[in-house]
Structures are given as structure tokens and as C-alpha cells.
Design a protein around this nucleic acid. Structure first.
Length: 430
RNA sequence: UCCUCGGUAGCUCAACGGUAGAGCGGGUGGCUGUUAACCACUAGGUUGCAGGUUCGAAUCCUGCCCGAGGAGCCA
């Protein structure tokens, strides 16, 4: 039999096909039944008419409960009224299993209930759309770097030392020694940049921060490029090209999914280079003008980020943060030793920081001095320092958080919906 | 860790000191173009747990448990 997927139905108009899937919803109308099947690739209305199929098959259709698995055969028809624009005129139905008491209904549910049932919630239409967009976003990430001849340089997940603060690491027993789950591939990437010029790593990262906000996950995915001989300005240009590419690609290829999410495309269609760029010091002035009384030298919180980003119709760079706000490996600004050659990218609409990056400190002496100031042990970073001994080179890179970027593109309020199975503070089920 | 809000039917909520109720979902019946379909009937409860105040507690008080939102930190 001609088993096809719902997303391909347009190629089978007026032909008889077989669909295999689950019952998403159904509506009865006397001698007519509308079954909404989902098969993973899409949603399709299957029309069962008593006069066409006879009593036996009609009764089967009537018995189907939410999320029952079944196979349906029938003729594909173009139908504007139906979801997706096509429907099946059913000839036969084969029930695989009748599901009993599926907990998630078509009406509203609370977040606690949905999170407890995440393994089932992921089947519903909005969640389906988000994950399809995630897939496109990730393909876009890989294609962008592949087309620009970056080399994929996977960094380890088990690490012996901290990359940033040590308070936010998960520690594990590594044959009697202490090891940690990676919270960034940044430092290892610099090995790759010296060997291959342009590299990126892309994988999960782990932060044991006790953060409980709509922008935080304990386990999240980050893509981190690192480029030899690139300065801060070049880094910002790479970031704006990259972010624009993935946003435009999602708009282009995932129209239906964005529509399911009721995303206002006009809010993201302007995401094209150049992005506005504002220095940290100018940003602080802007905040003061807007009534915020942040002191120079303090890092921005969510409120400050929103105040800055709401000034623009596309993501905005804030660059040259005070050294104290940033990690030890950020290069000092030679024009002002209080500043670092760092840059963050703030997404519009209150989605906050989606990129953090900058130029790295390439002076062996300055790096050692900075580590001593911050009381960071030298020994575990011996290899890192050696990169500055054997042909040091200016280099820059950044990290982009996939889930934050995805919630912004999708217009989803909380990052927990943008990863299939979110790990949150005190939630590791399902 | 701190601050704020919440926990009542399978789900979403109402009742705010005086007999626990609605919508959805479930069940039964009706309807040939439905779009979170609709109409009628029906089943469904130790009001998070423990104690206290009261003639009487879902409601007020105390403690605990669980959840949500936010802060700090970060992508």
C-alpha cells in the first residue's frame, strides 16, 4: 500500500494513500466524522462518511479516542477548509491501539501539569511547530559555518577545570578525581583556532546556577565559533551575519510553523546587517536617561537589557564592557585598561542576551597577570597559556544560546518550551 | 539563597466563616462540512499534609510539603 507522510500529501491529490499516525482530535456530525490525524510530519483531516464506508468502518472511526494509533486509507483531496489544505476521504481504517484517558485535552492546561506530562505535551501542535523550527535553526547554524569553511571542533563535555566561575559547575567523580560538566567549549576552541583557523563547537552545556527565570535552563545548547586573526569589530560583523542568516532562513523555510505559533513576522523580518552597536558606557548613559540608576561598572540585569533593546527594531550589540564584568580571558582594551574587548548581543522584545563574546587576551604576560589578580590556579590552564607561547595570535569568538535564540524567533515566552526535554532548577523529569 | 503568588473533580477555575459549583474532558443519546464543533442527559470530591481557633473551616492562624513568577548569576 502507498504509505505516505502528511507533509507530502500535495503530491498525491486524487490518489489513494495510506497514512499511519495518531488521533489528534475528532468531531462528530451524525453520519459524518472528522478525524484529525497527526503522523509526526503534520496534521490532516480524515473525513469518514457513513454512506461511503458502511457501518463497520464508521463504528471504528467513532470508537477512536484521543491519541489512539491507527492506519487510514483513502483518497487525497484539496480542501481549503481543512487543516493544511488537504484532506483524506476515508475508505478504510485499521485501529492499532485505542488509547484510554489521554490526559491532555484541547483546552488550556497549567504549566505544572504540562511539565509533568512533557513526554505527551511535545505531541501537541504548538510544541510540534517549535521543535520543527529548532531543527531548521540547527541546520542553519551548521550550514552557515560549513559554507564559510569553518571546521567543526567538538569540545569535551567532561572537563577537569572550570571555564568561568566555579560556583555554577556540576561536579562528578572521574575515577577518583574531580571533574565537571562543561559550561562552555570556549577555551578548547582556542586550541582549534590555532590549528584550523576558523572553528566552531556545538553541544550541550551545563550550569548548576540556581536560576529560575524564563531565560534559564540547567542544560542548554550553545554554538561557539572561534576565529584566528579576527578582532572585536570583525567578530561583531560575523555575529550579525550569522544571526541574520539563521533568522531569515527560519522565516523562509518555516512559514507554516511560525503561523501556528502566531508569531508576528514583522518583528523579526528586519533582522539584517548591520545591527546597532552601542558601547557599554553609552548604554549606561542611555539607561540613566531612561530613569534607570545603574552605576558604571555594574553588569546589566534583565531589566537593563530590556530597556536597551526596546530602543531598536533588531538585535543590538553592547560592546566594551568593564573588565570586571567579564571572564579572565577577555582581552583588555589597550585604549582603556578598565575595559575589555567584549560584546554581547541583546535580542529585542525582552528576550535578553543571546550572544556573548569578544576578543581573547593573546598576551601571555597579561593573561598570567589577570589570572593571578582573580586567584585562578595556573597549573590546570598550562595548555591554555601555551597557546600564547607558541605563535600567539589575535583571535575572537562568541557563544550563541540556541534556546534563547529560538524562543525569540518563535515568540515563545519561556525557554523551557524550546528544548524537547528541559532540565530546570529542581526538575529532571521526564 | 532571598522575595512574591498559588495548591478545590482527570484538566482550567469559582465559592473567601454557614448545604463544595461551572466549563472542558469521560460516559450515553442526537446531528452529512465540522474547525478548541454544537445540543441534551449523566457519572465524578478526605478542598496539598499536620495541628489550632470556632457552634460551624476550602475560607482564619501556625508549621511542613509541592508548584509558579522574579532577584542575584548567566546564553
Amino acid at each position: 500500500m502507498n504509505w505516505v507522510y502528511i507533509e507530502d500529501l500535495k503530491d498525491y491529490v486524487e490518489k489513494e494513500v495510506e497514512l499511519r499516525g495518531w488521533l489528534y482530535n475528532s468531531r462528530f456530525s451524525g453520519k459524518l466524522i472528522f478525524l484529525i490525524m497527526r503522523d509526526g510530519s503534520g496534521f490532516c483531516q480524515c473525513v469518514v462518511s457513513l454512506n461511503d464506508v458502511g457501518e463497520e468502518i464508521f463504528e471504528k472511526a467513532k470508537k477512536l479516542t484521543l491519541e489512539s494509533s491507527f492506519i487510514v486509507r483513502g483518497v487525497v483531496r484539496e480542501e481549503k477548509r481543512a487543516i493544511g489544505g488537504y484532506e483524506i476521504l476515508v475508505k478504510n481504517i485499521e485501529i492499532i491501539q485505542l488509547a484510554k484517558d489521554y490526559p491532555i485535552g484541547p483546552k488550556e492546561h497549567g504549566i505544572e501539569f504540562l511539565m509533568e506530562n512533557r513526554h505527551l505535551w511535545i505531541r501537541s501542535r504548538k510544541q510540534w511547530a517549535i521543535q520543527r523550527i529548532r531543527n531548521e535553526l540547527i541546520k542553519g547554524v551548521r550550514d552557515f559555518f560549513y559554507e564559510r569553511k569553518f571546521i567543526l571542533f567538538d569540545s569535551p563535555i567532561l572537563t577537569p577545570s572550570a571555564c568561568e566561575g566555579t560556583t555554577t559547575l556540576f561536579d562528578i567523580d572521574y575515577f577518583g578525581e574531580k571533574a565537571y560538566l562543561s559550561q562552555s567549549g570556549q577555551l578548547y576552541n582556542e586550541i582549534g583556532a590555532a590549528a584550523f583557523g576558523k572553528v566552531y563547537c556545538f553541544g550541550p552545556t551545563f550550569r548548576a546556577e540556581k536560576s529560575k527565570t524564563r531565560r534559564h535552563l540547567i542544560e542548554f545548547w550553545m554554538v561557539e565559533p572561534e576565529v584566528a586573526f579576527l578582532d572585536l569589530q570583525g567578530n561583531m560583523e560575523l555575529i550579525e551575519d550569522f544571526v541574520s542568516y539563521i533568522v531569515q532562513r527560519v522565516i523562509e523555510n518555516k512559514k507554516d510553523e511560525l503561523e501556528i505559533l502566531e508569531r508576528d513576522i514583522s518583528k523579526i523580518k528586519n533582522v539584517k546587517p548591520p545591527f546597532p552597536k552601542i558601547s557599554y558606557s553609552d548604554a549606561v548613559d542611555l539607561l540613566h536617561k531612561k530613569g534607570n540608576n545603574l552605576l558604571w561598572g555594574e553588569d546589566f540585569g534583565g531589566d537593563e537589557e530590556t530597556l536597551i533593546s526596546e530602543e531598536y527594531d533588531r538585535p543590538v550589540f553592547v560592546y566594551k564592557y568593564p573588565k570586571e564584568c567579564k571572564a579572565f580571558y577577555m582581552k583588555e582594551d589597550l585604549e582603556n585598561p578598565l575595559l575589555s574587548l567584549s560584546c554581547d548581543l541583546l535580542a529585542p522584545e525582552g528576550y535578553g542576551e543571546i550572544v556573548g563574546g569578544g576578543q581573547r587576551e593573546d598576551s601571555y604576560e597579561k593573561l598570567i597577570q589577570r589570572m593571578e589578580e582573580l586567584k585562578i590556579p595556573i597549573e590546570p590552564y598550562k595548555w591554555y597559556l601555551e597557546l600564547r607561547k607558541y605563535g600567539t595570535f589575535p583571535h575572537s569568538g562568541f557563544g550563541l544560546g540556541i534556546e534563547r535564540t529560538l524562543s525569540w524567533i518563535c515568540g515563545i515566552h519561556h525557554v523551557r518550551e524550546t528544548i524537547p526535554l528541559p532540565r530546570l532548577l529542581e526538575r529532571i523529569y521526564p
